[in-house]
Design a protein around this nucleic acid. Structure first.
Lengths: 374, 374
DNA sequence: ACGGTTCCCGCAATCGTTCCCGGGAACGCG
DNA sequence: CGCGTTCCCGGGAACGATTGCGGGAACCGT
């Protein structure tokens, strides 16, 4: 569109192999060159003085404005080089009203799932000149809201959110106050909030998984997943229900929505297995839950695949390298982050409207699923 | 000399191309606080006008300056509340010369090791009011340098670095140019660069691991670890050498320093095992390397613990839940990040001197280590 | 009553940019 | 020669805060 936002026009870096010390460009400086650093960065004002032109001219040269003669450009650029001038980002931000930075709120960066999303997002943002601010909400809706406000006060240009709760009123209220564009990651909020979103369609993967288990003969299946106040938890339960509804076999389903923590995975698995008619297959809705489930199974001396069939969500090295390898409902998490960033940039730069992008999920069968022993 | 625009009191009629709606939200308009429309954020100027005091007084009230009467404070605070004023972070940053933000450069956030470090650092920084900017260098020294310069131009107050290389001249040069304090995470640079550091003492863990393997009877041990241009790689090799030197048994050591990627782990393991006198034990120097090693072992049909003993570094769920569980040289990575942030804050706020903090490593034996079959 | 404090408050100068405006110089044309 | 264009450039007002300085008013002591 009309606004090219490239702050660097003449700002060449050129840190060539000159003396590493001081480089105090001005001869009349009079400062102690002995100090290894502490050289205050030059301002546009100083460049203007050295080139003997007006500040505005320096600005024009550097921003590629047409009203600049060749002679002028020469003089300014020479001064810029000699002073090693580079524009002050803060002043530019203040003046232009944009910070070229986006805030990312997520539950916990140490979760590989989130980390990969961040990885994808950061790469895209970086290549567009944006930088990424990160805050962990520790799965606490109150912290979510707090961080969003914090980012807002920091004047980020946009935000990417992976909320702890889609229903918490305080969170919703806070989101609605946000000025810049917002992109949700695998979350859904009411349309009137005007947020973009990149979500996974969790149904195909989950449906295939359930079909697979039923085909193998399982008639009692437990689904341990995250909170129903988050999209993945809801959709997974719905998908499983849908399959069981349309299959003729009568299958006992045990739904155990809770949280995404290892502790909950452990507890939920324990609870499911303690039942008098214990499930012959368990679906764990996330890598953290999987860890908990595996601990419980190990604890009880139950072998994966033979005693209990197991499916997990989101591929991690553990699921592939486990013995036996664990069937997985997988998705491209890095792409999830990438698309989130692209949606955000689209609204930031391209002026796009809020939009929801849907990404696929696939079921990958592995030996952890086998016919139940009867 | 141009048209002198008459200094009419109150008439802030800037010829700055802003929307016509600017600055008109004063006096009579202030009642619609609940408008859903994009309500421009109030400035200190507007607060001052509403309270009918000088801007400087507003600033004094808000910053807790002593020269403020009770009446003044009242009026200002009322206006602040009515306008829902909150200070502009950018303007404050520009004026104060600090951004309350720190940059973190690391190889790859999707590595759980790094992610946990970031988790710890972010929590500490957050509680001090700082925010964290994140950039992935993808293990590329050139990107390291580039990101450091980028952060520098963004005027972060300090930086936390987990460099790809401790020896790359360009990186060193760039680090030496950094104005604010720098904290290294598990890396070491020449003292004259003035960087703080939090590092692990990798020797005790590694020494115990090697001792354990030798005690079990292993006489040919392979160490697959990262680049020797990074502290962990160097120290681990040294530690292993030290143990073998002081033990009377003659042990064949195969050192395979390379990188921390899964691909390298896979290749290095393949190479080690292809040897005519193949090692009976392998030490993998990181969670990514472990994955590669496990893939190769699986590929060759070698069972962990029985055919080949295995030790890994940095505990991850995989090592605990693997069958058999994998012995680990562990350390507290979250604490690593926490301490890094504390070191940085100490220099930022407390005015501390650069310092190096050393954290321990421990060896946790598990069934993946067993006597070699002879 | 008067000099000296103390207590507050406003003025105005920054911080480092961006960008609108007005105007000088050079040029073209009738 | 006068006038309209075009091309550049400098001046200066923002952006939104912080802060040193100066001075008016009240207060105090003698």
């Amino acid at each position: 569109m009309g606004a090219p936002n490239d702050p660097r026009a003449g700002g060449r870096e050129g840190h060539d192999g000159h003396g590493p010390a001081s480089t105090s460009a001005r001869a009349l400086d009079g400062s102690h060159a002995a100090g290894t650093a502490a050289r205050r960065r030059a301002s546009m004002r100083e460049v203007a003085d050295m080139a003997d032109v007006a500040i505005s001219s320096v600005s024009r040269v550097l921003s590629g404005h047409p009203d600049v003669s060749t002679a002028m450009r020469e003089r300014v650029l020479t001064a810029v080089r000699r002073l090693e001038y580079e524009p002050d980002f803060l002043a530019q931000s203040l003046r232009r009203g944009q910070t070229l930075s986006v805030g990312f709120v997520l539950a916990d960066i140490s979760n590989p799932l989130m980390a990969e999303i961040v990885l994808g997002a950061e790469a895209v943002l970086r290549s567009a000149g944006y930088s990424l601010l990160l805050m962990n909400s520790e799965n606490d809706a109150a912290l979510d809201a707090q961080h969003i406000r914090f980012f807002q006060s920091r004047r980020v240009d946009g935000m990417i959110l992976s909320l702890a709760s889609e229903t918490d009123p305080a969170t919703l209220d806070t989101v609605s106050q946000v000025e810049g564009p917002v992109v949700l990651v695998d979350r859904q909020l009411p349309d009137h909030l005007g947020a973009s979103a990149v979500i996974n369609d969790h149904r195909p993967g989950m449906e295939a998984a359930v079909e697979h288990l039923v085909d193998l003969g399982h008639r009692r299946i437990a689904l341990i997943t995250g909170s129903p106040s988050q999209l993945p938890g809801r959709e997974r339960m719905e998908a499983m229900r849908a399959v069981l509804r349309r299959r003729s076999e009568s299958v006992d389903a045990v739904y155990l929505p809770g949280s995404f923590s290892t502790e909950y995975g452990e507890a939920a698995a324990r609870q499911a297995l303690a039942s008098d008619r214990r499930p012959t297959a368990i679906i764990a809705g996330g890598n953290q839950l999987l860890i908990g489930v595996l601990r419980t199974l190990q604890d009880r001396g139950l072998r994966v695949g033979t005693d209990v069939s197991l499916v997990t969500c989101d591929d991690v090295p553990l699921s592939e390298l486990h013995e036996p390898p664990i069937a997985t409902i997988e998705r491209d998490t890095v792409a999830l982050g990438r698309v989130a960033a692209e949606l955000l940039l689209g609204r930031l730069i391209g002026g796009d409207e809020p939009r929801t992008e849907v990404m696929p999920t696939r079921f990958v069968p592995r030996p952890s699923c086998a016919p139940p022993v009867s």
